[in-house]
Nucleic acid binder design. Structure first.
Lengths: 336, 336
DNA sequence: CTGTTAGCGCCTTCAT
DNA sequence: ATGAAGGCGCTAACAG
């Protein structure tokens, strides 16, 4: 392995000078610069990041704890993170918590031990108190993604309430008066906010909502499927439209609808939070609210890098808007 | 930051002893062990991996270069990789080549500079010669995933030919005689192999194939969509079934079919390589060959770890079988 | 404008 | 059964 000392020898200068030309950290004569650069080329020298990290206590490394690597939303966000990270000449360390608080703690620990310069985390809705503390006292800056928590850190979130209100308003406009909602777990702030958007849309039109139309269910598609079946079986006047708060819920709901033999949009209108690659290939194509996933990732990295650069910054929150993808899964309700 | 020296002081032993109890690398008296362990706990000491890496020239770090992070197949494989990596108490470094040979080279470089202990790479089909050389001369072991290349390294691949032959045989069994194939780029070995499977199925039944039924197209869904439209417009007797070689092709083909106003399976039967979350929610649910993505990742890590442990091993190839997910997108052809 | 030198935190040989 | 000491490759005072 070729080291800085080798380069110095070949170039006929001191290690100091080599270090300074590499890092552009003090003036070096043009002549010396050239000899060093040639020496680097001829020897194929690559600085050892570990030696550098040891010396500078900075690693040019960012960590990302994904709440669930198998979730397309997470991987989409990760793309943005990876892009912005490598653009900044940093490296990305990835860990997965699988929404398990214990794994989450371990992941955070492992990254901290790796001396990352900053952490991006999509907290699990199950996060334990311990995790909250770990984050509060984390050795380096942390950015929260898509989650709320009473923590004094930067975060990038999505404007759930207003966006959903507009989506639901579409349905209201079409004459739907009972819109069932199949939502993820209530303690998950995104689920709660999206339901709030649903409520807000009604209130703005002076409509009262029936809490019985809200179905907070477990985290799996299967839970949503069961809930959908329940809704359809219930004696009360059946909703004429359904709203799902994330793509996992959408999957389950769609399966439930099919199991019940209902077809969209004739028997039931539907709109969903989260867009996905196949949404336009369903029958009918599904109207969705698409999250700006890539941007979420890029912004998270930016916030992190900014704070690493200046720890005294005020906590900032970047709020991004989802985008409506109007397709054809909901229809005007016939009058009467 | 608390260092090994701090622990030594608190425990009243030498740094050497602390190091040895941490790494279980020589006998230490029960008494000393206990004092050291208490000191570690009370000080909250975490070994600095950079210092350790500098000293041992080993980083407990694996790298993964994904050919395309946005591809569900890649992220699915990555789950397996992440799982097996963290199970082995290693950390995962992720880089994305976006199927761009230049980025690929940069990614490989960046990881090499990071002194990873081993590299897993899903090579881009566009890989330049340079990349091939880089891999051949890579400083640490490399495992190839889902790609073939004339390189003396371990690899984990999927049995494409035989699996596709069985899938196509289903169609043949149902009386289809002209089965069009919409395939990804030919130089991509997976595409080529899957087409070979299609051919093999015919040959086994003594059927001759018409090369005009094979459509190697560009890498995007849009390319597949165009190709599908072409097939449908062409004067020749139209295929009664279509086979797509990956999920991107499937998407495009489905869009093309819909654009042409054909509906599955009445107007056209279809089967596809690659399963995806929404395959059962299409109308009709799509018959697919599912790749063992998680296992691919786990096996890749295992091969890598094995070789890191013993560089003299023979090159090994792990071949995994896809799994047929029989759904209802193809039907028996009416006789005549 | 350049070089000498002293570590960063850890492992490991050698000595006892 | 334990310690002392040197050095992994790099950076950054400090000293010219």
């Amino acid at each position: 392995m070729v080291t800085l000392a080798d380069v110095a020898r070949v170039a006929g200068v001191s290690k100091t000078t080599v270090s300074h030309v590499i890092n552009a950290t003090r003036f070096v004569s043009a002549d010396a610069v050239q000899r060093v650069e040639e020496a680097i080329l001829s020897t194929g020298f690559r600085p050892n990041p570990y030696a550098r990290a040891l010396r500078t206590a900075t690693t040019q490394t960012l960590g990302f704890v994904s709440s669930d690597i198998s979730n397309p939303f997470s991987t989409a966000v990760m793309q943005g993170i990876e892009f912005a990270t490598s653009r900044a000449h940093h490296t990305l360390l990835v860990a997965n918590s699988r929404d398990d608080p214990q794994l989450e703690e371990q992941a955070i620990d492992a990254l901290e031990q790796r001396r990352i310069d900053g952490l991006i985390i999509a907290m699990s809705p199950n996060s334990s108190e311990t995790v909250l503390h770990r984050i509060k006292d984390f050795s380096v800056p942390v950015v929260l993604v898509d989650r709320d928590a009473p923590l004094p850190v930067d975060r990038v979130i999505v404007e759930n309430v207003e966006a959903v209100a507009e989506l639901i308003d579409l349905l209201l406009e079409q004459g739907h008066t009972r819109i069932g909602v199949i939502a993820g777990e209530e303690r998950h702030n995104t689920s709660a906010e999206r339901v709030r958007g649903w409520r807000l849309a009604h209130e703005r039109r002076g409509l009262t909502v029936d809490a019985a139309d809200i179905h907070f269910v477990g985290p799996t598609a299967h839970d949503a499927q069961e809930a959908t079946l329940d809704v359809l079986r219930s004696a009360a006047p059946r909703p004429t439209a359904l709203f799902t708060t994330n793509s996992t819920m959408t999957q389950g709901t769609l399966r439930g609808l099919r199991e019940a033999g209902l077809s969209l949009p004739r028997d039931m209108s539907m709109v969903a939070f989260d867009d996905f690659e196949w949404a336009d290939l369903l029958s009918p194509p599904l109207t969705c609210l698409a999250q700006p996933t890539f941007d979420i990732g890029v912004n998270a990295v930016q916030l992190l890098l900014d704070r690493i650069g200046d720890a005294t910054l005020e906590s900032r929150t970047v709020r991004l808007d989802p985008e409506l993808r109007l397709r054809s899964s909901s229809i005007e309700l016939p009058v009467g």
